[in-house]
Structure formats: C-alpha cells, structure tokens
C-alpha cells in the first residue's frame, strides 16, 4: 500500500518522530507524576503559606488551554532565557509546557484522592500513637495512590495526545513528520489514520499497564 511503502521508505524520519513523541510524552508523564504527587500532598496537608502558591499555580494553569501554555513556554520562556544566553529548543519548551500542565492535573488528582480517604483511617493511626509522617506514609499514601490510578491514566493519555500540539511550534514529532511526508506527496487521510493508530496503540498500552497495576495493588474497601 502507498502509505505503508512511504512509511517504510522514510522510516528514519518516522522513527525519530516516534522518539520525539514518546520522549516528550513520557518525560512529561514522569515529571508530572513525581512533582504532582508531592504538590498534591502539600496542597492537602500543607499550611496556608505553602499550599496557597500551589493552589494559585493549579488554578491558573487549568484556566489556560494547553496549546497556549506551549506557545507561552516557547515564546516567552524562550525569549527570557535567550537574554541569559540559553537557547530553548522547541522540544525542551514543549516538554516544559506539557510538564507544567501535567503537574497541575496530578496535583489536583492527588488532593482529591487524599481528601476522599475516610477520616477514620487517620484516627486509627493516631489512636495507635503514630505520628503524622508515619500515618501519611504507611496508611494514607498507599491508599491514595491506588485510588489515583484511573484519573492518572486519563492525565497520562492527555499528555501523550498533547505531544501533537508540539508540531505547531516546529517539533518534528509524529504529527509534523506525517505532515512533511504528506507534503512530499502522500495521502493525507491514510497518513493521519496511520499515526492515529500509533497514538491509539501507545495510549492503549498505558491503559493496560495502569489496569494491571490497579489489579495488583487493589484492595477492597471493607
């Protein structure tokens, strides 16, 4: 078939496109998860002084479209860093932007998960004489993490899908690569469907992994 032939012919480009997509996507997922969970815990249990900036950050980021965050990262951050002598390449700007959005999402999810835990769990820990850090690490965090898996999977999927927006700042990820191949004489419909399927595959793999993790760590609420 036309599409498969051209894909194989330009497999180097396609491969680097995939690498770009996957590295930006999973990089953002990783950063968002680690930083987001910490931020979420601070949101839930921190005092007003530390929690407020995070609250403001989350509320601001969630009120702006991801694409605009990407443009702001590329243009504003890039411009600002330029005067310090650092050149921000498009892929890095994209990673930063996706991470910023991801952190805000994960922080909210984390906060929600902790606040949904029954109060009796903290009581039981206190009654046994545990100090709060112990209660947090042994009782609350394990339960919250498991509860977080479904919404987290949603965020992860959105971040992978968000990498396509990086094509609009010139990152040669999968979508831009496809556009370039189409410009060289490819069938737009088939190419888009082809890369659509690739994203479908990546996202399905993430969902399967998440479901497996959930099954492994799942405990039932008595």
């Amino acid at each position: 078939m036309n599409v498969i032939e051209s894909l194989i012919n330009s497999r180097d480009d396609v491969f680097s496109g995939i690498v770009s997509t996957v590295s930006a996507g999973f990089g953002a997922i990783f950063i968002a998860t680690i930083v987001g969970i910490v931020a979420g815990m601070v949101l839930t249990y921190g005092n007003a002084l530390v929690a407020w900036p995070i609250r403001a950050y989350v509320d601001i980021v969630r009120g702006i479209p991801g694409l605009v965050v990407i443009f702001i990262s590329y243009y504003l951050l890039g411009f600002a860093l330029q005067s310090l002598g650092i050149t921000l390449d498009a892929w890095a700007a994209g990673l930063i932007a996706l991470s910023i959005v991801g952190i805000a999402d994960v922080a909210e999810i984390t906060r929600g998960a902790f606040q949904a835990l029954p109060r009796g769990q903290t009581d039981a820990g206190k009654a046994a004489g545990m100090k709060f850090p112990t209660i947090l690490s042994s009782v609350l965090l394990p339960q919250a993490l498991v509860q977080m898996i479904p919404p987290w999977t949603n965020t992860a999927t959105e971040l992978i899908k968000g990498t396509t927006l990086l094509s609009l700042i010139g990152v040669t990820e999968l979508l831009l690569t496809a556009n370039q191949l189409i410009a060289r004489g490819g069938n737009a419909l088939y190419f888009f469907i082809a890369i659509g399927l690739m994203f479908f595959t990546i996202n399905t793999l993430i969902q399967l992994a998440a479901r497996a993790a959930e099954r492994k760590f799942h405990y039932q609420i008595a």
Binding site: P118, G120, Q121, D123, A124, K126, A127, A128, G129, M130, T134, S138, V139, P142, Q143, V146, F217, Y219, Q220, I221, A222
Partner: peptide, 30 residues
C-alpha cells in the same frame, strides 16, 4: 496515645493490609 488503645465503631481497619499487618503496624512503627 500509644499507651491507650481505641476500638472504633466503624472499625477503621487499614484496608490495604492483612489482619496480621493491621496488628503489627503499630508495633513496628511506634
């Protein structure tokens, strides 16, 4: 609190731990 023991109306067992680990958690951590 470690020198008093409380049993709650809604049990408040740790759902992610076995019966034995529910009992040993306090012994280990406190």
């Amino acid at each position: 609190r470690a020198t008093t023991g409380m049993v709650f109306q809604s049990f408040n067992l740790f759902p992610h731990k076995t019966a034995l680990h529910n009992v040993t958690l306090g012994l280990q951590k406190v």
